[in-house]
């Protein structure tokens, strides 16, 4: 699985906001083009961005392999036609190019994922979204990060217990209802304990955050983001 790893690459030294800007710029540029030359340029740029974060291309592709079936089937579905000629190659190749750029957009995020710790992302969110909404989402993302492993364990415990009692032999509706009820009960108990703990620790709208600062490296990153947005108009 691809998650944050401490390192000293170029991407690790960038401010999270410039990395997000590059990703958004990349997506805008990619979604505006399906012809061959822009796709080649975007492919090269993808490789550079992945390199800048120390992610090997195959690792990024493997991490996002779940997206591949859709992207492989899309051109097939696009090409199939009822009646002559049964398979429209032009339609299929256009959709194949579209699928390819979508995959680039997805794979590029591997660079951000490997190079950005959650608390830096949280600080970026709270410095970008002002006031209480910013506090709610910043704190919320930090809590999701904290609770994800616990709730994965809850889910696994309930599924194991159910399987041990031949729950896997039951119908789909019954299994879904059972898993949903059990996990929600546990989750809400955790939420109520969390709420008590937050209040006991003076959960406030204005806590102190880690400092973020733009460095000289961020200037070219933002320049690249703007350039990518600009290419969408070409």
């Amino acid at each position: 699985m691809l998650v944050y790893e401490p390192d000293d690459t170029v991407a690790h030294r960038l401010d999270p906001r410039s990395k997000l800007a590059v990703q958004i710029g990349f997506a805008i540029a990619a979604l505006a083009h399906t012809s061959r030359r822009p796709l080649l340029a975007l492919t090269a740029l993808t490789l550079v961005i992945l390199w800048s974060a120390g992610v090997r291309p195959f690792r990024a592709i493997y991490a996002y392999r779940y997206a591949l079936p859709f992207l492989v089937f899309a051109p097939l579905v696009a090409g199939l036609t009822l009646g002559e000629p049964w398979f429209d190659v032009t339609d299929a190749s256009q959709s194949a190019a579209a699928s390819y750029r979508v995959f680039l957009v997805i794979v590029v995020s591997a660079a951000y994922v490997r190079s950005t710790p959650v608390r830096a992302s949280r600080a970026a969110i709270q410095r970008t979204v002002p006031g209480k909404p910013g506090q709610v989402v910043g704190m919320g993302v930090a809590l999701v990060f904290r609770f994800l492993p616990l709730l994965r364990d809850d889910v696994r415990t309930i599924r194991d217990a159910s399987a041990a009692r031949l729950g896997t032999e039951r119908g789909l509706l019954e299994r879904t209802t059972h898993l949903g009820t059990g996990t929600l009960e546990r989750a809400f108990r955790r939420a109520d304990r969390l709420s008590l703990a937050l209040q006991a620790r003076c959960f406030a709208w204005n806590p102190t955050l880690p400092p973020l600062a733009f460095s000289g490296l961020d200037v070219p990153a933002f320049g690249l983001a703007l350039l990518l947005v600009g290419t969408a108009t070409l």
Partner: peptide, 15 residues
């Protein structure tokens, strides 16, 4: 922001 929360345990703005 990259937590592995989407289908198949993936994350990232690209998804």
């Amino acid at each position: 922001v990259g937590l592995p929360v989407f289908a198949g345990g993936t994350g990232g703005l690209g998804v």
